[in-house]
Deep mutational scan, measured.
Amino acid sequence: MATVKFKYKGEEKEVDISKIKKVWRVGKMISFTWDEGGGKTGRGAVSEKDAPKELLQMLEKQ
């Protein structure tokens, strides 16, 4: 499965696309949330040019 790689608060992170729940556009950035388990929700953002095609497809479906 595809993953999204991004930096959050200076830390490199990687999230499996299948865990992503919500995707939206903020200017030229793609923001998203995912389920971290245990009732926690993670947040992240990646530039439109660095976003994997699967993430962009999720954005178009909404």
Rank of each mutant, 00 (worst) to 15 (best):
L55P: 00
F32W: 01
A45L: 07
E14F: 03
K21R: 14
T33L: 05
P52W: 01
K19W: 12
K61T: 11
Y8W: 13
V4I: 08
W34G: 00
R43I: 11
G10I: 01
A2R: 08
M29W: 15
S31A: 05
Q62F: 04
L56Q: 12
W24F: 06
M1H: 14
K21E: 11
T33N: 06
I20G: 00
I17L: 12
M58T: 04
E12R: 03
K40N: 09
I20D: 00
V4D: 00
L59F: 05
E11M: 11
V15G: 01
L56N: 06
G42F: 14
L56P: 02
W34L: 01
Q62D: 15
E60R: 04
S18T: 07
K13I: 15
V15S: 01
M58P: 02
G37W: 12
M29P: 02
R25F: 10
I17W: 01
K28S: 06
R25A: 09
K7W: 09
R25V: 04
L59Y: 10
G42C: 15
Y8A: 02
D35L: 11
G42K: 09
W34A: 01
S31Q: 08
K19I: 11
G42Y: 14
D50A: 08
E14K: 03
E60V: 12
E60W: 03
S31I: 07
M1R: 04
K21V: 14
G44Q: 03
M29V: 13
L59W: 05
R43A: 07
V26K: 10
M58C: 14
G27L: 13
G10P: 00
R43G: 09
E36D: 12
W34K: 00
W34T: 01
L55N: 00
L55T: 01
D35Y: 10
K19Y: 14
L59I: 06
W34M: 02
D35Q: 12
G38K: 05
K53E: 12
V46P: 00
E11P: 00
D16K: 10
K49W: 08
W24D: 03
E12K: 05
K61W: 09
L55I: 04
K22N: 12
K40G: 12
K21H: 14
F6I: 04
K40Y: 15
F6E: 00
E60K: 11
G38C: 15
L56T: 13
D35T: 09
E48F: 04
G38Q: 09
R25L: 08
K53C: 15
F32V: 04
A45E: 15
G10V: 01
L56E: 06
K19V: 11
E12F: 09
K22V: 15
F6S: 02
F32T: 01
E14S: 05
K49T: 09
K5E: 01
Q62W: 04
V23D: 00
S18L: 14
T41I: 13
K5V: 04
S18N: 11
E48K: 09
V4P: 01
K5G: 01
V4A: 01
W34R: 00
A45D: 15
E14T: 09
E14C: 05
G37E: 11
G42L: 14
L59R: 03
V26D: 06
A2P: 11
G44I: 07
A51M: 08
A2I: 12
G10F: 02
E54T: 07
L56K: 12
G44C: 11
K22I: 11
M58I: 11
I30W: 03
A2Q: 06
G39W: 08
G38P: 07
S31Y: 06
D16F: 12
R43E: 10
Q57E: 07
D16A: 14
V26F: 07
K21D: 09
K7M: 13
G38T: 12
E14I: 06
V4Y: 01
T3P: 02
V46K: 02
K21Y: 15
L59T: 07
W24Y: 15
L55K: 00
K53A: 04
V46S: 03
T41V: 10
A2S: 06
Q62H: 12
L56S: 10
E11Y: 06
L56R: 09
E11D: 04
A2V: 13
S47D: 13
E54P: 06
A51D: 02
K61R: 04
G39Y: 10
V15L: 04
W34C: 01
D16W: 07
T3M: 08
Q62S: 12
V23G: 03
G44M: 05
E48W: 05
G39D: 12
K61G: 13
